[in-house]
């Protein structure tokens, strides 16, 4: 973990209610896809956890949806403004176990961390398929970015306004070696049920600190209690106990 002040390079609307922020600063503590940063926002007491979408040297990309006062304030920030982040939080996805044809499943703002994951898997020489699930057409983002990486991309929308109608689990391919998922809890549950290979799923929880100190984000797993912020947010399929 590092506390670093980043400078905003770009901050713009990517889709309905969804923004992309490009930041520059010391991102050296970000060592695995699926990790997150905790964002300090003036006037708000707790930091806001946001997944690392991409990291390239000193450049960091975040993609976030405006849901409340914190993300709303972020959406109004301008180029040149400074942002105080705790970086390198969480375990991130393990790519060693993926086999040669992993499947990535993302729902809504669960999509962003899959980008750095896809990039990493492709660099490792793997053939990556991605299913991106959204509610409707105007919420879709990053379809082309994943294609440009060389992924095989399928988009689903719940209302059928673009791509395949339905949920990510309605578009599962016949063959894949492993899966990685990030998205809302109902999606994670559906994926867990539908996918039969090994897999890793990324979870959200309300956080006090984001670095393992407060026990605010604990969950029960097969291997004991885990803190989503430090021992997660990524859990291996075999560890998960569904409680909620």
């Amino acid at each position: 973990m590092k506390n670093v002040i980043f400078e905003i390079k770009e901050n713009f609307k990517l889709a309905n209610g969804v923004y992309k922020m490009l930041l520059s600063g010391d991102a050296s503590d970000i060592t695995a896809p699926g990790q997150f940063v905790n964002v300090r926002i003036d006037g708000l007491y707790l930091r806001r956890p946001v997944s690392v979408c991409d990291r390239d040297g000193d450049l960091l990309t975040l993609i976030y949806k405006v849901v409340g006062s914190g993300t709303e304030a972020m959406s109004k920030m301008k180029k040149g403004e400074k942002l105080d982040l705790l970086t390198g939080l969480g375990n991130g996805y393990g790519t060693g176990v993926s086999g040669d044809a992993p499947l990535l499943l993302g729902g809504g703002v669960g999509v962003p961390p899959l980008y750095l994951l896809a990039k990493t898997l492709i660099e490792e020489g793997k053939k990556v398929s991605v299913i991106l699930g959204f509610n409707k057409k105007d919420e879709i983002f990053y379809e082309n970015e994943f294609k440009d990486l060389g992924c095989f991309v399928t988009v689903t929308t719940v209302d059928g306004s673009y791509g395949r109608k339905g949920f990510v689990t309605d578009a599962l391919p016949d063959n894949y070696s492993y899966y990685y998922a990030c998205g809302p809890l109902p999606m994670l549950k559906a994926v867990y049920k539908a996918c039969k290979t090994g897999g890793q799923l990324s979870f959200e929880e309300r956080m006090g600190c984001g670095f393992g100190a407060c026990m605010g984000c604990s969950c029960k797993t097969v291997t004991g209690y885990k803190r989503i912020c430090k021992d997660g947010p990524v859990l291996y399929k075999e560890e998960i106990l569904w409680e909620k």
Binding site: L44, Y45, L46, E205, R206, M207, G208, C214, M215, G216, C217, S218, C219, E243, K244
Partner: peptide
């Protein structure tokens, strides 16, 4: 059970 954390003006709530 979680959620155990909430925010308020200049502070927070916990029910760890």
């Amino acid at each position: 059970p979680t959620p155990r954390i909430a925010e308020c003006a200049s502070g927070m709530l916990n029910a760890v």
